[in-house]
């Protein structure tokens, strides 16, 4: 079977939405430029969706090609129109850009009313630029070690948890930005939260470590309580003090 040359997928992207209420070419251009100058980096080559759902131009026609050109000249990339009424539908279709239906209820809910034109000294055009930023937590996969970590070896899980399914020998060192789990004897050094995460913990099946550390607070083998030695234990930070308790 041959491989397909493409794949169709649904995807969500973040774009700048330009809500336009009234279009007078000269003042639109001036006001848009002023807005962009406030954060030129942010708007550079930014895709923009032009929402004409609230556009009323007192019955006069709108030159959408000019509108697109003005946006492009200021470094934006118009990708389409949204919410076109019958009044503008054919003019927008002529521009060749996409025409999307009116926005969903969710977007409408967060958009707010245009300020009263009366309060403006020059209320000719009101441009509102709205950005929607989606934040996603990116989780790095834990680092999993299946063989013993031997004397002289060092294993570091950067930005992640470290899971050792075997032992950590005397003279070996395991480090992680997150938690450390050792499903075997921990005889070497274990340093969790090396990037300063005070919530990081160390878990092991047999505590016999040379040194344990969480976010730079460390404890040497000789400071470990004898009752915990060779028992399954966890290590965590509480009020800048390392606690080692049985599991």
């Amino acid at each position: 079977m041959s491989h397909a040359d493409f794949q169709l997928k649904g995807s969500t992207i973040t774009v700048v939405v330009l809500d336009i209420y009234r279009y007078l070419p000269d003042s639109f251009s001036t006001q848009l430029e002023q807005k962009i100058l406030q954060a030129p980096q942010f708007f550079a080559n930014s895709p923009v969706l032009i929402n004409v759902g609230k556009l009323t131009n007192d019955g006069s026609p709108v030159d959408f090609r000019l509108l697109i050109k003005q946006c492009s000249e200021l470094g934006l990339q118009p990708v389409g129109f949204k919410g076109a009424s019958d009044e503008f539908a054919s003019a927008i279709a002529d521009t060749g850009l996409a025409s999307l239906p009116d926005s969903s209820a969710s977007v409408r809910a967060v958009s707010f009313e245009a300020p009263e034109p009366a309060t403006q000294a020059d209320p000719e055009v009101q441009v509102e630029i709205k950005t929607v930023v989606q934040e996603k937590v990116v989780q790095r996969p834990s680092k999993v070690i299946t063989r013993p970590v031997r004397s002289g070896q060092q294993v570091y899980a950067e930005g992640a948890d470290l899971i050792v399914l075997s032992q950590v020998s005397e003279g070996a060192e395991v480090l992680a930005d997150g938690n450390i789990h050792v499903y075997g004897a921990l005889r070497g050094r274990a340093l969790a939260g090396v990037y300063g995460d005070t919530e990081a913990r160390i878990f092991c099946q047999q505590m016999d470590a040379e040194l344990v550390s969480v976010a730079g607070n460390f404890l040497l083998s000789e400071s470990l309580d004898e009752s915990i030695r060779k028992q399954s234990a966890q290590v965590y930070l509480q009020d800048d003090t390392l606690k080692v308790i049985p599991l």
Binding site: V149, R150, S151, G152, Q153, S169, E170, G171, A172
Partner: peptide, 13 residues
């Protein structure tokens, strides 16, 4: 025993 552990690490790596 410790030196053997070290050489086992070298065998592994």
């Amino acid at each position: 025993v410790r030196d053997s552990d070290r050489i086992l690490g070298i065998l592994q790596s």
